[in-house]
Design a protein around this nucleic acid. Sequence first.
RNA 1: GGGCUCGUAGCUCAGCCAGGUAGAGCAGCGGCCUUUUAAGCCGCUGGUCGCGGGUUCAAAUCCCGUCGAGCCCGCCA
Length: 520
Amino acid sequence: MEKRKLISRLKGYQNPSGEIMGETVHWADKIAEDLLRRGEKHRIATGITPSGHIHLGNLREMLTADAVRRAVEDRGGKAEIVYIADTFDPLRKRYPFLPEKYDKYIGMPLSEIPCPCGEHESYAEHFLEPFLESLDILGIDVEVKRADRMYKAGEYEEAIKTALEKKELIKNILEEVTGKKCDENWSPFMPLCENCKRLNTTKVIDFDESGVYYRCECGHEGKATYRGGGKLGWRVDWPARWGILGITCEPMGKDHAAAGGSYDTGKRLAKEVFGIEPPYPIPYEWIHLKGVGAMKSSKGIVVPVREMVEVLPPEIVRYIIIRAKPERHIDFDPASLLDLIDEFEEAYAKGDRSVRLSMVENVKYSDVPFRHLVVVGQIANWDVEKAIEIVKRTGYRVDEETLPDIKRRLEYARRWIEKFAPERLKFEVLGLEEVKKVQFSGEELEFLREFALRLKDGMKADELHNLVYDVANEVGLKPAKAFKAIYKAILGKTYGPRAGYFMESLGIEWVKKRFESLTA
RNA sequence: GGGCUCGUAGCUCAGCCAGGUAGAGCAGCGGCCUUUUAAGCCGCUGGUCGCGGGUUCAAAUCCCGUCGAGCCCGCCA
């Protein structure tokens, strides 16, 4: 009894992985431990179909894999990520973002359809390329496999033959697990019609060592090769690729993970048809857009990844996903990004595990808050040298070590302000001529004049803040009005950043001159 | 019909796997400071852990049931 008590007490303070007391084990570390118990080398598969803009929700698959990869490596194991781009999938329907002429491509493999903008090799590449660029920016190192090339190169050949030979077994497993009857013409293989180039309109008649005989709805009859002449249906394709690529772990959307879903069938097909062990599954939840719903390429409700990495530092994009356990919904709210970044920066200072898993290599994070950069940048009108001056003046360390990161995040701050920031946070320091057009009352001018007189070099934010109240009281102006006068004199608006802090950032001398010129 | 995930403070969540009697951030309130202004620090308020049973010396945690929310399973990953 005593012993048990002691043991359970201890558990509260230390867990088996030796993490610091009280700290929760990160989900990626937990999974890494499971994986390492099975073996020390891992190949993690990811797969996203480039049928439309690849968005934040899709990115979860990649980042889940990447966090696990890092966790495995942190523990001395080896892991790599393979990204299979399903470029050989047929176009399911004409999505809302496609012109009408794309109707005729429905059923054709994405890799064989012309690019919507004309600048890429194919439809698939049009969406794939920006995504691959994003992966690079996010520091996600992957081996890219394009499904159409895998098929064309014959990597699937053996698996296709196995599937055709064991068609009845596969059919039985599918029917048993899903509880649904397969069509009587069902085949694990979908030939690509040579005539109309469609995958979903052909029926398999027979097959031999040299190919698969089929008949298409378009009237064409022909023979498909095992090398790019068609593809396996998804539920068979998946376990087949596990074997071909030696996959040991794979994150998957919850649709696959559902009972009777493709992981359930894949698991049995892997063992009973292909004779391999299915990978360790990591089911993950969807990412919703706050107030809008699940991100769906097909509905056009997306934040394309490429757009996000333009505007947000990669470590922040990673953090959004890595901080949440895979099985939890993420309600992404662009409006509260600044709060999230605050949280990130605070967690960074504490050495938080999610943050460490989010940092992209070679980034030395400086201690200038992103929030500050947003204000500083706007004051400097995004002149980098000027902005750096202000950062320095406001008390942050600027040297060889911190400078690259300050510049880097200043640039993100600029883009964020331009694209994502709420209006309330935007401002522009007006030129004197413009400010002179703004209407001021007599008492406002009196306040500004007196305030300018009382300004002294080297005053700090809180002193400036206090001075507003002091002077306002002396000239008999309500503090609220005094603040408005200050903002009007600088921004032409009645609100702005915290006044003391703001004026310190602008520089006392500048503020003094501005107020004097206005009241002269 | 089958299944998954979630339900803990006003909000977002941690803690559950390996039971020891509840934590964080934000919000709110108060103070530093005669102070709503996009700071900071300190403090405070705030939870019958959805509900009901069971196991146990002990349950947010394990088991059974139940309610609520979201979602997945139609070879549209």
